[in-house]
């Protein structure tokens, strides 16, 4: 065994020890590999940093948009708009019927719709005080 090893160690190619040549080649290959891996990792790291920045920026944008959305969806605002634009208001008791009474309601002669007093007063259409007395 030791003779074979010693023979291997003594082999020379063009005067240069084979073992040393192989070792040098391995060393260069290792250096190159380390360099390539490090360069690749650096690029990935830069990309990750860039992505993190984008994520943070988008998170900030999301929060700003959440704020804006909540502002736009304020119930008071929605109510004011639905009152002004669509004249929507809560269902009154007289607008509700039981299923059993539907037939009787259908037989009733149609009456022209009269505008209801808005439930919530708005700046555009203030509620007259007398309209509240029942």
């Amino acid at each position: 065994m030791s003779v074979a090893i010693i023979r291997l160690l003594t082999v020379r190619v063009r005067g240069v020890s084979l073992v040393e040549t192989v070792a040098f080649g391995c060393l260069v290959a290792l250096m190159l590999a380390v360099y390539l891996f490090k360069a690749g990792a650096g690029q990935e790291s830069a990309r990750i940093t860039e992505l993190n920045k984008e994520i943070l920026a988008e998170q900030r944008d999301v929060r700003r948009m959440q704020e804006e959305l909540s502002r736009l969806e304020q119930p008071a605002r929605i109510e004011r708009l639905s009152d002004q634009m669509l004249h929507l208001r809560p269902v009154a008791a007289k607008q509700e019927v039981q299923v059993a009474d539907l037939r009787a309601v259908a037989r009733r002669p149609a009456t022209p719709a009269t505008p209801e007093t808005p439930i919530a007063p708005s700046a555009a259409a203030p509620v007259p005080a007398t309209a509240q007395v029942r």
Partner: peptide
Amino acid sequence: EGPTAAIHRADLVDRNGEMLALDVP
């Protein structure tokens, strides 16, 4: 999980998840 924007106070929401208060940069 990626990074999260630094917030000092958690969001306050109503019982249905509607936003009431939040940290905005």
